[in-house]
Amino acid sequence: MIDVTNLSKRYGDKVAVDDLTFQVKPGVVTGFLGPNGAGKSTTMRMVLGLDTPTSGSVTVGGRRYADHPAPLREVGALLEAKAVHTGRTARDHLLAMAATHGIGRRRVDEVIDLVGLREVAGKRAGGFSLGMGQRLGIAAALLGDPKVVMLDEPVNGLDPDGIRWIRDLLKGLAAEGRTVFVSSHLMSEMAQTAEHLIVVGKGRLIADVSVAEFVARAAHDTVRVRSPQATRLRDLLVGPDVTVTGGEPGLLEVTGLTREQIGDRAATAGLTLHELSTQQTSLEEAFMTLTRDAVEYTAEPTAAGRTAR
């Protein structure tokens, strides 16, 4: 369990994390979703106490991370930036990490096998590909058999096989009752891995929902309508929860009404329709729409300044 409470982080004038409050619960994979620069990595560094919050707090299992006598048994983390000395072999890196907790060679060999690095464990990490580096980072995260597994953009640099492997690993860890918190800037990735989502944009919380609910809430299907009497039809359709946009003459894009409702209203008014089709919004589009709103919200002062000039 990770508890984030009114967490903020400022670097100079740059607000990286802005009053975040959320909880990550055990037993499910929780996705931490947001575009680049949203503050995901910063939040994760604050969970580990690597960066100190400007205000607010974060606890793991009810305590500050640093207050746990065996931190690696509490949280296993893969950080975004490489956190391995390039001159050391993978095995020596893991042996040194393990030694801080009195964890022995057998567990080190176990995690090396688990991530599939056995053949290169004796090679220096500086020569590793991005994907091998990610696997080494995941091995280090699993060393202490942790209750919480926190991975920052773990699929970066992995091939499709590796991505599938991570997905299965994360789901397996969650099924064992662990807390699994994994960040990504790709909605499609999260939709296949996570059950719950914490969505952030510009350091702020945008949504804290199940993936199913997020999809339902965000993915407003659009209906495409073509009609020679488009202007009259628009007047018939607009309402409080309905938006109608038109890209070209005679074409309407309607959200908030079903195809059937639109067809019926047109028929009642005796209007001709040349096309009536549902356009499915992809998850990625839904995510972009959500986070674009957050970006616009915080960018408002700049935009206003530009208009005034």
Binding site: P71, L72, G102, R106, L143, D168, L173, E176
Partner: peptide, 23 residues
């Protein structure tokens, strides 16, 4: 490359695993 290995982890992560200065 399976998660099975994780199901028997207590065999290799000692129960007294924690940070000490000597470690």
């Amino acid at each position: 490359m399976s998660t099975d290995t994780l199901r028997r982890p207590t065999a290799t992560v000692p129960a007294d695993a924690k940070v000490t200065f000597a470690r």
